[in-house]
Design a binder for these strands. Structure first.
Lengths: 203, 203
DNA sequence: CGCTACATACCGACCGGTTGGTATGTCCTC
DNA sequence: GAGGACATACCAACCGGTCGGTATGTAGCG
């Protein structure tokens, strides 16, 4: 296998992502990216047609990992619990677990970076983000509906909004966690969400 | 009142804020700002020492309005309800009310914009955001504590994290609302938060 | 094997345009 | 006529992107 191609492209993407998470897309020049990756502009534009091409590749990779994470938690909670309510709570518990023990670098989210500079990206790039968030809505809503079918929640509640609250709690946590410099904030907020669900469906 | 000075400065800030909310701080050039405000660079640098000076002024104004909003809701809920639990629920209800009926432009938050490009701003600017969020934490935690003292919540819960969840729900809603193009998402999420509190303290 | 033909990976100089910022000038008001 | 409120003109640095070139394959063929 040629040691170069894939490696270099990935390295560019990794360095670019780190820079974008820190200072945003627009402030991340391709000059800075290639310097960080110890390359030249020639190398960059060999692998990407334009800077926007990189942006698209990055968000697609991020969405892919994100959905893989979702599917994994879905599958595991499916295996670990039979009861719909338990399945729901285990699912959220697994997510919480994944964000525990986070200390040093406060979480960043590429979606937040892109949304904050939304005016710079084309429809296709936005669609990647939208589709990913909608997958979360659909899947979580499915879990909630199954739990509600097994036994109605303690109070009447908008199940779609409840599903969205998980994603909202994640994205909001990323923002607030960085703003306050508190790494454990994400996991604590997901735990809050779980407490909410326990109250609704009876833990 | 002199019609010029304050007006021009405010106009610069307004246009700059609108642009930053749309495409971020870095991608908002002072050239674009003065063009939007129908001015020239001379005018801009007459009112601001540097672009960073504008950034600071904007976040300070935003924080001021944000805290005024908080204080108003705090004062009104104080007047409208005597019981600590009712006071808490009315407080959140007022916030929800303020975000209802929002249709056209999906909400943006300057804090989100700044956090997404955190690496570009100095400590002082970050401190403004941090202090503002901490005020929310303190005040909401106070309301929660008072409610808990009047009658313990239905389940044991981390009251500080519960306080943070309100801010997290706001910031997260701003992000997701823009990403999905759903203007009513903010109010629906704040309503979810209220439902959570009702479950904890008994509406 | 040796030769040709072509592809991939990367370099570094360079281009036009834009950036934040400055220096100077002009007009209006007190 | 002094000072504030702008406009005009300009600069050096940097921006995304192009281009000619090179080094290293790699596949086909005799």
């Amino acid at each position: 296998m040629p040691p170069s191609t894939v490696d270099t492209r990935t390295r560019i993407m990794d360095e670019a992502q780190a820079l974008i998470l820190d200072r945003g897309y627009s402030a991340t020049s391709v000059g800075a990216i290639v310097e960080q990756a110890d390359l030249t502009k020639g190398a960059f534009f060999h692998h990407f047609d334009a800077k926007a091409d990189l942006a698209r590749a990055l968000v697609e990779r991020w969405a892919e990992h994100d959905l893989a994470h979702l599917d994994a938690a879905l599958a595991r909670s499916d295996r670990l619990a039979r009861d719909p309510v338990q399945r729901l709570l285990v699912f959220v518990g697994l997510l919480e677990e994944a964000w525990e023990g986070l200390t040093e670098p406060y979480a960043g989210c590429l979606f937040v970076s892109y949304v904050a500079e939304a005016g710079l990206f084309d429809e296709g790039t936005h669609a990647v983000i939208r589709d990913t968030l909608l997958r979360w809505r659909t899947e979580v809503h499915g879990l909630l509906q199954a739990a509600a079918d097994a036994g109605p929640p303690s109070v009447e509640v908008d199940l779609e909004a409840t599903a969205d609250l998980l994603v909202v709690a994640f994205e909001g946590s990323f923002v607030v966690s960085r703003a306050l410099g508190e790494a454990d904030l994400v996991a604590r907020q997901i735990r809050q969400y779980r407490t909410y669900l326990e109250g609704l469906f009876g833990g």
